[in-house]
Design a binder for these strands. Sequence first.
DNA 1: GTCTTTTCCGTAAACGTTTACGGACAATCG
DNA 2: CGATTGTCCGTAAACGTTTACGGAAAAGAC
Lengths: 342, 342
Amino acid sequence: MNIHDLAKHLNISIGTVSRALNGRADVNAKTRERVIEAAQKFGYSPNQSGRSLRQGLTGLVGFMVITNREREARGEAFFMSIFDGMQSYLSSRGLDFVVHFCGSDEDPVAYLRRIAERRLVDGIVISQMYRTDKRIDYLVQRKMPFIAFGRSESSKIFSWMDLDFEGVAEKAINHLCLLGHRRIAIATASNDINYGYLFVDACRSSLAKRGLDLPDELVLQEPLTESGGYRVGERLLAMENRPTAVVLVDNTMAIGLYHIFQDVKIVPGKDISIVGFDASPNGEFLRPSLTQFEVPLGQLGRWLGEHMMLLIEAKGTGKKMPVFSKLWPMKMILGDSSGPAL
Amino acid sequence: MNIHDLAKHLNISIGTVSRALNGRADVNAKTRERVIEAAQKFGYSPNQSGRSLRQGLTGLVGFMVITNREREARGEAFFMSIFDGMQSYLSSRGLDFVVHFCGSDEDPVAYLRRIAERRLVDGIVISQMYRTDKRIDYLVQRKMPFIAFGRSESSKIFSWMDLDFEGVAEKAINHLCLLGHRRIAIATASNDINYGYLFVDACRSSLAKRGLDLPDELVLQEPLTESGGYRVGERLLAMENRPTAVVLVDNTMAIGLYHIFQDVKIVPGKDISIVGFDASPNGEFLRPSLTQFEVPLGQLGRWLGEHMMLLIEAKGTGKKMPVFSKLWPMKMILGDSSGPAL
DNA sequence: GTCTTTTCCGTAAACGTTTACGGACAATCG
DNA sequence: CGATTGTCCGTAAACGTTTACGGAAAAGAC
């Protein structure tokens, strides 16, 4: 069933059918009603390929995720809530939303190029930004609407949004310092992941403001996994001058860390303080409860949807695309895992 | 840059360019080389809309996921590994892969219809099957290639694959019975999720084979979340004639269950036995380690990719589509959470 | 040297839409 | 009643591909 069949059945031209369905003004109310009714009845919906070809727009917004075998799948779970928020907003605006998974064995830049060149989407959110990320240069040069979820060092001007790592660092350090901690370790990701680097830097300057320093041996780089957290625990236990507190950049790590502490009968919040990061793999079920930061991921997804829409509309009307940047605030949730320094 | 520009630049016709790039036989080797080189140089890649329109194929395979606010995002994490496997296989066969997230506030059937009618994909995997699922009827009637990930009661003939719940139930019950357990509880999902129902049924018949029964009060239906697991624990503790073992249909539950047991100083594997389900939110980090089942999700994704390909190819060549059904086996991993009955 | 075959390429029609344009007719105006 | 305006609709071109078809030139066969 295509537009011709429908038109023939109604005894009108395809032009009128198209106009009727697209809500154009120059069509009789009565006719429009008949068309919509018939479309309904026959389950007609315009072929997106034909549509895209004519309009140069696909009506699709993409979100690129890089699957990562090293990081356990669980770590990626918080994307789900973001997707939910984005989908919900975009579908209310008549756009569809799809997620593109770049396999762990593919080159992210080549993957993205394929999506862009085949014109599969009108705009795309890219995530898991590297410290320098070729994807940005490519998309800027191609003038394709995109938002980077995560900052990246780049000479180009581009739109991004990111979690407020600096704010988190400041709040975490402040909280621990008020509790009397002086020697604080930071567990973070490897340096090529941008936020690992950002977070350590932010902690360092928050500490400096209070006259404290962050020696290199207290920066523990491990994979953002449960086993990574376990490794962090092992390294902490091996230190002669053990820190009294540790800040994690990822909650998945907290689970591994709790386990090793449980094994050696160290109680978080009493013998050592722990501050976790985000609320996705929920730390609320850890005992003692984890002091951590909360982020409304659904809202964040909606924000991405709204701003993607703005970019696409600007491009569609020939105006120059606006440039956003946004640090998403996070709220500290006090748990029992952080207590006074010994 | 489109095919006309490229052809003009090479001083040949667009037909030849197209044939050269699509690997047709009737084009001179020398010419083909020139074309490919130029396409490379200018970053030309055919517009997918034009292509789809002509061929009636999008070169895209979809995977439909229903996001669910009740179930915490974490539960959905194991999809990530499946996506990785599917993407990896399909991209090696020149197909693209996208994931469609049906928002928690949308009707899954309407959502799927939109995808199908707009012809966004050539084939689709649908997941989170309901016990009776309208999506199946729709796709069958539309003759669209699809695979259901999960079984469903339906009068239609369709392809599906599912985890081997019966096998898991049998192995779990056998294991516990050999350890001397006689009173075993089952924690599962609500009845409209198909596998909750299947799993309980399978456990019941495995128990029956051994002369045991499964009274209704030992079937604990709770959400497949950590808090659901906590609730299961509460209900177990409240029983006067407490079971000596419990089988979970979801590992996320195990985390909540462990926590409540920790709170009241009940040790899994000693005071009560626990058998978990799948290996996605890894139970291996629970202490004592969880007895659970392992499933290679990447391979499972590849299977889906391969068979989707077969369906699409069959439809493309006009042959009638084959029908598959597959129970995916799972392997029991012994942990310390299951021990002799008291 | 003629006839047949092969190799290669250009032409043009389709795929299903949207939309600029113009025209038919009715309505309004003076 | 003629002129103007407005309402509605049909026509046809365009979007970027792929591919059936036919034909020119080259190669091979006798």
